[in-house]
């Protein structure tokens, strides 16, 4: 089967003239449909740049990124916005909820933008809210709910459009360990039961241990890749810690 995401020889260079900085150097990898992939690496390694480039929020300097049949590296701005709307979902560390909208309205928003009929919107919102356990909160405003609830709202918003792939940038970064575990379990569940494709950037080995595969980057290049396979989450967690120790990652950050 054809991979969902194909990243081919992607470079990203910031700056001009003598003061250039290569954030990504010749990155090539693939993501299959239904995979839960983690991206790890030390600060400044290019994790977020990679995610932004894949998520079409930033454009690569060279190389191709195929999501499905579309080469997003070559798309124009307007087409990109529509592509994001129809195919991608985002979860950010700082939730990025709109505080003038209720929880329900925040989740409705991407469907409204995609011009989905009102009846269908209601059905879909109720379903996703149940999945993330926020049905009781739908009429509250973001400032009235906790961080974990906010992140579940943001995840509902990302998933309600049934995107081809979900990008999560440090989704547990601002959460306490209980909320983080709840969220990761929900994501993992979605991945297993509904075959959702998720790509998550994190520096937290615990969060990463929920993934099936982890890509490590260092100084803008892919340095290592590990698979969970048949290992338990605990075993996989140990393995991640070892790799991180090897490449000098944020071991101290663990839990």
């Amino acid at each position: 089967m054809k991979p969902l995401v194909q990243v081919k020889a992607v470079n990203k260079i910031y700056g001009k003239g003598a003061q250039t900085f290569e954030a990504l150097k010749n990155i090539t990898f693939q993501v299959e449909e239904g995979e839960f992939v983690g991206v790890m690496g030390p600060s400044g390694a290019g994790k977020s740049t990679l995610l932004n480039v894949l998520a079409t929020i930033d454009a690569p300097s060279s190389g191709d990124i195929l999501i499905g049949d579309d080469n997003v590296a070559k798309m124009k701005d307007k087409a990109l916005a529509d592509f994001r709307r129809d195919n991608l979902g985002f979860i950010f560390q700082d939730y990025n909820l709109l505080d003038s909208l209720t929880v329900r309205e925040n989740i409705v928003l991407p469907l409204a933008i995609a011009k989905v009929p009102t009846k269908e919107i209601n059905a879909r919102v109720d379903k996703i809210a149940t999945t993330f356990g926020i049905s009781e909160l739908l009429n509250k405003y973001p400032y009235q709910i906790s961080g974990g609830q906010k992140q579940r709202t943001a995840s509902s918003r990302a998933l309600v459009t049934q995107p081809k792939i979900i990008f999560a940038d440090e989704p547990t970064g601002a959460l306490d360990s209980k909320s983080a575990t709840d969220l990761l379990e929900s994501l993992s569940d979605l991945n297993e039961t509904q075959n959702a494709t998720i790509m998550m950037v994190t520096h937290d080995a615990f969060a990463a241990s929920f993934c099936q595969r982890i890509i490590f980057i260092q100084d803008g290049t892919l340095s290592k890749e590990i698979h969970r396979g048949a290992k338990t989450r605990k075993q996989f967690f140990e393995e991640i810690l070892q790799v991180l120790a090897g490449i000098g990652g944020d071991v101290n950050d663990v839990i």
Binding site: A55, I57, D77, K78, A81, D82, F83, R84, R85, D86, L88, F90, F92, N96, L97, L98, S100, L109, P110, I113, R157
Partner: peptide
């Protein structure tokens, strides 16, 4: 920032 969020979730310039 609100509009940046909208941009990220796929609102195009015309909208």
């Amino acid at each position: 920032d609100k509009y940046t969020i909208l941009y990220k979730i796929g609102v195009n310039d015309t909208q």
